[in-house]
Each structure stands twice: as C-alpha cells, then as structure tokens.
C-alpha cells in the first residue's frame, strides 16, 4: 500500500511540475490534458495524501476510499475556482499564473506529506 501511495504522489508531482511550463506554451491537446487533470485532481490528491486518506485495505472495506476520491476532486475544483475568482476580483487575471499557484499548492502538500511521520494513519471503521 505504501508503494501505491508513493506512485500516486510521484504521478501527482509530475502533473504539477509539467503544468507549469505547459501553462505558457505547448500543444493545445497536451496542455488541456495536463492542466485539466491538475485542476480536476491535483491539489486535492496531494491533500488526501497529506491527510492519510490513503486507499488502504481497511479504507476500501469501510468506504473511506470513495470519500478520499470525492475530497480529492472537490478540493481541487474548489481551489481552482477560488484562485480564478480571486484573480478576477483582484483585477490580476493571469490564467498561467493561476495554474502555477495550483502547482505550487500541490507540490507544497506533497512535500509536507513526505515530511510527515509514517505512523500517522487514518483509522476507519
């Protein structure tokens, strides 16, 4: 299970890092896929990994896995919305900068998750 978490973390980090240059330049289809994925699930997946909403066996058996997926998606969408809306109201509209903020949040959460002691786990029943 720890390896599943690691792979998920690496994949999330890869998307977050790739989104930064792609928010400025790149083929439209690739930009849409990577940035779309970041906005849909990036910061939320990192948050869920930080909070130990891991897809462990016990989580799968007790329903924590759907909750973890739901929180990952909803938090990513909410963060993307709030960043975009804040840029509008602050009259600082710069979509690539917004994507960079989301990438930074994602990477920050992943960094915190790495630093966190492994023994802290969600106990689900």
């Amino acid at each position: 299970m720890a390896s599943e978490r690691s792979y998920l973390g690496y994949a999330t980090a890869a998307v977050a890092v790739a989104a930064i240059p792609l928010s400025f330049v790149g083929p439209e289809g690739l930009r849409l896929a990577v940035i779309g994925l970041l906005m849909l699930a990036g910061p939320g997946t990192a948050l869920v990994l930080l909070l130990r909403f891991a897809p462990t066996r016990s989580a799968r058996a007790t329903g924590a896995l759907p909750l973890a997926i739901a929180v990952a998606i909803a938090f990513s969408l909410a963060m993307s919305t709030l960043v975009a809306t804040a840029m509008i109201y602050a009259r600082l509209w710069a979509p690539p900068a917004g994507v960079c903020i989301l990438s930074a949040v994602t990477l920050a959460f992943l960094g915190l998750a790495l630093k966190r002691p492994q023994r802290v786990e969600v106990r689900a029943k």
Binding site: L22, S23, E28, R31, L32, I35, G36, M39, L77, S80, T81, L82, V83, A84, T85, M87, I88, W93, P95, P96, G98, V99
Partner: peptide, 16 residues
C-alpha cells in the same frame, strides 16, 4: 462568477 472563472482559467491557461 466562480464556475465561469474556473472555465476561463482552463481556457486561458491551455489556449483552448
């Protein structure tokens, strides 16, 4: 405008 800003950011940042 929240949801539309989200779409606008997607469109603006991807060039779509």
């Amino acid at each position: 405008p929240g949801f539309f800003s989200l779409l606008g950011m997607l469109s603006g940042a991807t060039g779509a």
